[in-house]
């Protein structure tokens, strides 16, 4: 029996919706677990990525920590997959890209009512936000893209099983969706 493929996953500037959609493959998860084992992932709570065959990244890049995690994944994973609209286009977080970041923070934390102690968060533990939100392929080389917001469990299953079987992953009508 061949060795299981090692897979890491993470969510950067995303909403974990793509990870929820991965869980939507339901009982096929058991079949998947006969083919792969998980390294760093919200499912394992491993904090850093070891050498992996496949890295799956949800969410775009909106702060400095996202860049470090993405680069760690790229350096440890043979194949890197961007999953979901945010990872591929910047998605909803990128809808601030035509605005000035300082103006956004001022509007949210100072101008708008509702925050008890209105000040722009400045705890040194917080990663610095980037001026613009970026899709993953603008930072590192991405090998595959699974579009969707989120992609359906069926689309993720089709894509991963094609890839694991050594075929060029193909989604086709009904599985390829951008929304």
């Amino acid at each position: 029996m061949s060795k299981k493929l090692r897979v890491a996953t993470t969510s950067l500037a995303g909403c974990f919706g793509c990870h929820m959609s991965l869980l939507d493959i339901d009982e096929r998860l058991l079949t998947l677990l006969t083919l792969v084992e998980f390294d760093r992932s919200p499912l394992t709570d491993i904090k850093h990525c070891g050498p992996c065959d496949i890295g799956i990244i949800e969410g775009g890049i909106c702060n400095a920590e996202n860049v470090h995690v993405l680069r760690e994944f790229r350096s440890r994973c043979k194949i890197l997959i961007a999953i979901g609209s945010c990872a591929i286009t910047g998605g909803l977080p990128a809808q601030r890209n035509h605005l000035d970041l300082g103006d956004c923070l001022t509007e949210v934390y100072l101008t708008e009512p509702g925050l008890a102690h209105g000040h722009i968060p400045n705890d040194p533990e917080l990663p610095l936000p980037l001026d613009k939100v970026h899709p993953l392929h603008e930072i590192v080389k991405i090998d595959y893209f699974i579009p969707g917001c989120p992609p359906s469990g069926d689309a993720i299953w089709k894509f991963l099983t094609d890839l694991i079987a050594g075929k060029t992953p193909k989604l086709g009508h009904g599985l390829i969706e951008y929304d």
Binding site: S85, I88, L92, Q95, C149, L171, H173, I176, E177, D179
Partner: peptide, 27 residues
Amino acid sequence: NHFCPSCEKSGDCKLQALGYDLEVHTA
């Protein structure tokens, strides 16, 4: 700025449909 998830034309959009048909996975 083509953010399909928040566009009310999604599903009726010819640009998007061409993307699907031509198997465009990323810009």
